[in-house]
Design a protein around this nucleic acid. Structure first.
Lengths: 337, 337
DNA sequence: TATGGTAATGTTACTCGTAACAATTTATGG
DNA sequence: CCATAAATTGTTACGAGTAACATTACCATA
């Protein structure tokens, strides 16, 4: 049926369409950009040929000649973490309507992998990058500077940003929540930490500062592995074993907190009367569970949106207006502290 | 400092590196593919120049000339849904080590948007596609056939697959869970459905079949909008208002089920004694909560991995071995039914 | 030293869409 | 009916890397 059935059928090019109509590919190209540039009879013929062959535009030549891919690289440490899924959602909600394609990559919290992933994204000539965290190797900084494309860093803003960073002040947030717990009367507050990345380290710093400012005693349970509900349960048991009079748990994320909460329920420990529990990130579930989880509500989707908006602005030639943007967090008291 | 500081500094090309060394770009190209193809002294000089300029390979010419992008398009209906985040994770876990870049797109359950997104992915010359659902418009089917790249459909396999579909049998899963609930003694089981996509419709079919096979009465609460914990709470209230003797709730996903569960807890309804509640998808939280949620455990990450593996196999030239792959699901009884 | 062979490097052409310029056709006005 | 403007279509070149072919350099042997 198909004339080209013998050959390895590559998808049709503008030339194929042009041949079918009997014009040059330039004419077809013009039709595609602005149909009124070609004569009415040709408009019809070209439209038919395009439909007939199922022509799909090809960005490759454009990327090659103009180095404009209309693709944005998005690099996150992990896809596992719901937090990043929400950030990505925010990013896409802005980029997609603006006609940009998202190239997603993740690096599993490894700086080595981060380098490789950034190089990979750059090799596709992405027009801009949204990357996570603010600490990067010299090599990464060089690559990004050489690439000459706008870069937005999200999630935190600990190191001076390459160009622009949009995040939240994890330390201040953790300090604020710890203070709340203390005010609620909790004295022996243990911090549960997993996945010791920059953000968690900042939160620990905030927690410790608040504990010390109140003259209390700090205690951290931590692991490098990923957090999970079950890890929260394990930590809870561990905390009670090490310090039986523990009366507060502040977790580096809601997963741990929810795990800890259920561990208490299973052990017949009343939350918040016996032990207060607070999380971090304000997952939806925290707003419905019984008891309502105290948590730090972070604007993750908003962060993604903002990052994408600023990137688009940069792509339109606007300069960086604000190097560091710290988005507001919100302490949700819930019923668990 | 930088010689090119005046110009809009494009990133260095092979030519720039070659100029610095004093050879042609072909020699540098050879070094990059196999260093031993160039003489030892040049190897050193080229390596230095590459490092010095911070050369980053450029895939664009390759994509243009060989139509091989080493990028795979992944299309999901939504990024909001945790389920798809896990599928994507599975996909990336295979594609990334294989040297493929993921181009992510989502279409918000709109068939129109799906067409546009697929066209966009194809315009980047993706080497393969992983798309969600098995029902597609004629236009989509034509685009995919013309593109001549391997396509894997995931999530369900209701319509005959374009080439290969990897999913689970939603209808059978819903039937099985409904049967379990009936066996546990629940008689007036209401189905909660949101986001009426193909998978949910299949599940409803399975639920209804099981209900009818047992001579019971069906009842569905549904909405086209997205599901959420709070929607589960709302549905719960609605169900009790409409049918006060409701003694079972089967939800199209865990979010609704968890919302319903908490609504019961808040209303002093005992689960599972007064009302049994079952969900779908086996989110991690279902395995720790009190009571443990009855749910259908679906192998989401495994599905992603498998899809990616089959796609890679196809890219290596292997034929489709099995048009439809239905992955096993697992009924987790939990404590809530 | 000439010759053959190999290793190392260079040259040309190609991919596809489009900018820039050129050529042709059609339209307008006197 | 011709000159000029305007509309339409064609031609050439470009982008960055690489396959395929061409050339040069170098070494060993007769």
């Amino acid at each position: 049926m198909d004339i080209r059935s013998g050959m390895k059928n590559k998808r049709p090019t503008l030339q194929d369409v042009a041949d079918l109509v009997g014009v040059t590919k330039m004419t077809v190209s013009r039709y595609l950009r602005n149909p009124d540039q070609v004569s009415p009879p040709l408009q019809i013929k070209i439209a038919e040929a395009l439909e007939d062959l199922g022509y799909i535009p090809n960005r490759a030549p454009d990327i090659l000649s103009k180095s404009k891919s209309h693709a944005i690289g998005v690099l996150v440490p992990s896809l596992t973490n719901q937090v990043f899924a929400e950030v990505i959602r925010g990013i896409e909600s802005i980029l997609e309507p603006a006609g940009y394609q998202t190239m997603l990559a993740h690096y599993g919290y490894s700086k080595e992998a981060e380098e490789a992933r950034i190089a990979a994204l750059l090799s596709y000539n992405v027009d801009g990058l949204i990357i996570s965290e603010s600490y990067h190797t010299e090599r990464v900084r060089k690559m990004l500077s050489v690439a000459g494309i706008p870069v937005i860093e999200i999630m935190d803003s600990i190191s001076p940003p390459i160009e622009q960073a949009i995040g939240i002040d994890n330390q201040a947030a953790a300090y604020a929540m710890t203070e709340c717990m203390i005010q609620k009367g909790h004295q022996k507050i243990v911090y549960f930490a997993a996945r010791m990345d920059q953000r968690t380290l900042q939160r620990i710093r905030g927690y410790k500062a608040a504990i010390h400012d109140s003259g209390l005693q700090e205690m951290c349970l931590s692991t490098d592995s990923a957090s999970s509900f079950t890890l929260g349960e394990q930590f809870m048991k561990e905390a009670l074993a090490k310090q039986p009079d523990t009366d507060g748990i502040f977790c580096t994320n809601d997963d741990l907190a929810i795990g800890a909460l259920y561990a208490c329920q299973k052990a017949g420990i009343n939350v918040p009367k016996d032990i207060g529990i607070a999380g971090f990130h304000g997952h939806n579930i925290a707003r419905v569970m019984v008891p309502l989880l105290a948590t730090v509500i972070t604007p993750r989707e908003e962060m993604g949106r903002l990052a994408a908006e600023h990137l688009l602005s940069r792509l339109q030639g606007n300069p960086v207006t604000q190097r560091i943007i710290n988005l507001p967090f919100q302490i949700e008291m819930g019923e668990s502290i």
